[in-house]
Design a protein around this nucleic acid. Structure first.
Lengths: 141, 141
DNA sequence: GTGGATGCAAAGAATTTGCAACCAA
DNA sequence: TTGGTTGCAAATTCTTTGCATCCAC
């Protein structure tokens, strides 16, 4: 795993390269994502940043911006709510998300049965998974 | 794949066993799901049933009921919209969903790299996937 | 200085809930 | 008969959009 400061700097560079401005809300949100190292919902982020400091809408817009800049990824969840996480330059991974408290933990190794075993080892029960692929079909191209 | 009539009967039996009533909207929705053999959104189903015949709310409630009865499964999608599909007694599978027209096709074999290859063979490009596990964590139990 | 970014309000989309009328068992 | 089910309306939840103001470059 990359050092937080490094990860922050790399992200800032990506934003600059794409001509996005480095604003206070963006810096704060980026720091939060770097520090938490976990997928967060827009609301989580808004609260953690101190709800009174920046608007929820700004958080949404910037998460979207981060995604467009290739800095973050949106993770659709079972509940219909999206989580966002910083793109780690490390290997591909997924998460195990608690159905009750919505805590998300990172799972290394990407293969479903192995993942379910891993999840069980982390103390999760009633484990199920959602796996869907997305792409553009021949008809739409 | 099971014969449609058979599948319909099995589903009806499941509903009866759970003491759910066999109403017109339920029969119509079930027939639709059996026939389409593809995941549908609540709105898709509502339109296919003839929007004027049954209420969208009834469709939502019955898809929920079907899920509770173990007849159907909700599939959260990238866009935040849910799709529902009848539980096939056959093997575990997932889908490839077109980002543009939202057409969903069934993919057999559950292993991610294989699936992406399969998706490519089906003519899909820009293929990505969402894989998240859900469960109840130790803290919540 | 200027166009992108923000905050506030309001709109939107998907889904859920409340409640009286209705009907399957 | 009666409690589950439906339809209509309204509420909720998450997310996006409009617009005037503001500030990073």
């Amino acid at each position: 795993m990359k050092k937080p400061e490094k990860q922050y700097e790399v992200a800032i560079s990506s934003l600059k390269k794409e001509r996005y401005r480095i604003t206070e809300p963006r810096k704060a949100l980026l720091r939060l994502l770097v520090e938490s190292q976990k997928p967060l919902s827009a609301e989580d982020a808004h609260l953690s940043l101190g709800a009174q400091d920046y608007d929820l809408v700004t958080v949404y817009r910037n998460l979207e911006t981060f995604e467009a800049a290739g800095i973050a990824t949106r993770i659709p969840t079972e509940s219909g709510k999206s989580l966002f996480e910083l793109n780690a330059e490390e290997h591909h991974h997924h998460h195990i998300i608690c159905r009750k408290c919505h805590k998300a933990e990172k799972l290394d190794h990407c293969e479903v049965e192995k993942l379910e075993t891993l999840a069980a080892k982390l103390g999760f029960t009633e484990v199920t998974h959602v796996l869907e692929l997305y792409g553009v079909c021949g008809d739409c191209r």
